[in-house]
Nucleic acid binder design. Structure first.
Length: 576
DNA sequence: GCCGTTTTCGGCCCGACTGTTTTCAGTCG
């Protein structure tokens, strides 16, 4: 069983939790946590790096010791230190930290005083009212723990598209009071992460109305529970279970606060450290010199300027090399929605779409596109009434006829063709060659072992009519895990053969993810950002794809559908 | 445990809110 970056990160994160509970040096704990984060956001596999004799200590936050531990994990799949820690305390003790209100200190107390070693025992202790008598605990804390245990089952991060609607209603509600001046949603929402843990809203208020805004906030219709309410910060939980934090700051601090609350935490720490070196203190109120005088804070640009950095787009603020890139003046010009010229994956009601060819074409023109690829399913996908060669030929004819009448717009003749288990495509070359492009997809046997799944797709790429690999991992966020595939091998194979990867923009998919997008860019594989629209409204999902692409550092030149059809056509021909 | 253009030792980001205290520890972001 090969060890992946995620496995290593998981082990380090657990080591950090258990060490922290045991009261270890907090900086040692931080080192493990840092390493876990670094490794999970790496766009290459550590295992491959070791195989190629690349030095792991070049990675930020990885020194001699951790590099050695990583090697151990890659070789044995486990880490003696973790086994030891699990023996010393309890294997599942770290679970306690997931309960709101419980941190390392209290977990330690619960373990020592009540011999609580997991969540089941925690519930038992709370129900028997044993916790309230512990030093530092009380009745309220005990109740909070029970509540936390209840909510735990439904704990999941919320998809960006869902949060977008919540954010819109809530900010409109706050805005309607006229007590606020600026309202901005910060946090991972602003960084456009595919899922959001909680919503961070930042406001500046009119003179003297700060408390009024806080009160209005906690009285919002959708609020189920008020977790805390203060003059500058309040936290509520909505009926959906989503937590929302509201922070109020003065206008002079707005930029600093926006930077601070947009995060990511790791990015902020990196920026603050740069400030420290210049004898500056950076917090949510501004940038302060050594006499504690505020020298910046109104805008984010000011904050960056004080540490000699250019403005860094929120989507990049993950401490994944953006600070280094900024220092060297090498920040990418991230792709924007208005650079998208068309959509390379869509369906009509001929298979499982909801609208006709004509309606989809009209909708695409309304968006301002120059082209729309109609890529209905192929016959193997019977549930979707997939096309056989004959029906596809008819669709081709119909598209040719429609194209006669368009001005400055084209329907592209395409197919979302199934990649069969043996790696062949679901339709014969004789019909595929009549198309402008193919979008090729795995729709069954998601559970093949990694090697076989990878081989299957690479074999499909060997077909000269293979253009774009649709939703490459097949994951559905919060619902279906990604297929086991060796993405680096797929990317290599794609580049060698002149194939491309899709970034499926459906908010449930966003497949490729941000890290794989960055990997594609680094490996020289171009990406199609496609909505996979099954209806006219779905064309609007393009923005989610662009967000994800920006998180993966993609620029216009990395993305197929920023190019004209004349350019694209050459890229899709693999004849020579 | 990591890191280094004042350091190979001695630093390591910072503030708000709650509940349990009796001046503050713990948690959270």
């Amino acid at each position: 069983m090969p060890v992946h970056n995620a496995d290593i990160a998981k082990i380090f994160a657990k080591v950090a939790d258990l060490l922290e509970i045991q009261g270890a040096n907090p900086f040692r704990v931080r080192a493990y946590r840092n390493a876990a984060r670094q490794i999970s956001s790496l766009s290459r596999s550590v295992r491959d790096m070791l195989e190629q004799n690349k030095s792991l200590t070049d990675l930020p936050g990885i020194g001699e010791d951790l590099a050695g531990k990583i090697e151990t994990i890659v070789e044995t799949g486990t880490l003696p230190l973790l086994q030891e820690l699990m023996k010393q305390s309890a294997p599942e003790l770290d679970e306690l930290l997931r309960i709101p209100g419980l941190g390392p200190k209290r977990a330690q107390t619960l373990f020592k005083e009540l011999h609580v070693t997991n969540l089941v025992e925690l519930r038992g202790a709370a129900e028997k009212r044993k916790i309230r008598d512990l030093h530092g605990f009380g009745e309220k804390t005990e109740k909070q723990i029970l509540q936390g245990l209840e909510q735990r089952t439904s704990e999941q991060r919320t998809k960006l598209a869902v949060v977008e609607e919540v954010a819109k209603s809530l900010t409109e509600y706050l805005d309607a009071s006229n007590a606020t001046k600026k309202i901005m949603v910060a946090g991972s929402y602003r960084r456009r992460k595919e899922t959001v843990g909680d919503l961070d809203i930042l406001v500046t208020c009119r003179q003297g109305s700060q408390e009024k805004v806080m009160t209005r906030f906690v009285e919002y219709d959708d609020v189920e529970q008020v977790v805390s309410q203060g003059k500058t910060r309040s936290t509520v939980i909505l009926r959906s279970g989503l937590q929302v934090d509201l922070r109020a700051v003065a206008a002079v601090s707005y930029g600093a606060a926006l930077h601070y609350f947009t995060g990511s935490k790791a990015h902020n720490i990196a920026v603050r450290k740069m400030g420290q070196k210049k004898n500056l203190k950076i917090n949510e109120y501004g940038v302060f010199d050594n006499r504690d005088k505020r020298i910046a804070g109104k805008t984010e640009e000011e904050v960056y300027e004080k540490v000699d950095l250019p403005y860094i787009e929120p989507e990049m603020r993950e401490d994944r090399g953006e600070i280094e890139a900024a220092k060297m003046g090498r920040l990418p010009q991230l792709i924007t929605l208005d650079q998208i010229l068309g959509d390379l994956h869509s369906h009509t009601k001929e298979t499982d779409g909801r609208y006709s060819l004509e309606e989809m074409a009209e909708a695409a023109q309304k968006v301002g596109y120059k082209y729309l690829a109609v890529s209905n399913h192929s016959k193997h996908l019977t549930v979707a009434k997939g096309l056989d060669a004959k029906r596809l030929a008819e669709q081709i004819e119909k598209i040719d006829a429609l194209n006669e009448d368009f001005e400055d717009f084209l329907l592209l003749k395409a197919i979302e063709v199934d990649i069969l288990e043996d790696g062949s495509l679901d339709l014969p070359d004789s019909i595929l060659k009549e198309l402008d492009l193919t979008v090729c997809a795995v729709h069954d046997k998601h559970n093949l072992p990694r090697g076989k799944q990878t081989e299957r797709i690479i074999r499909a790429m060997d077909n000269r009519y293979f253009n774009i690999l649709a939703h490459p991992t097949g994951r559905l966020i919060n619902e279906r895990r990604p297929c086991a595939v060796d993405m680096e091998r797929l990317m290599d194979a794609a580049r060698e053969r002149g194939c491309f990867m899709e970034l499926n923009a459906q908010p449930d998919r966003l497949d490729l993810n941000d890290i794989y997008c960055k990997m594609a860019k680094e490996m020289g594989v171009k990406i199609a950002i496609s909505t996979d629209a099954h209806g006219v409204d779905d064309l609007q999902d393009m923005r989610f794809g662009v967000y994800q692409a920006r998180r993966g550092w993609l620029e216009a030149e990395d993305v197929l559908n920023t190019k004209s059809w004349t350019e694209l056509r050459k890229l899709f021909r693999r004849d020579n």
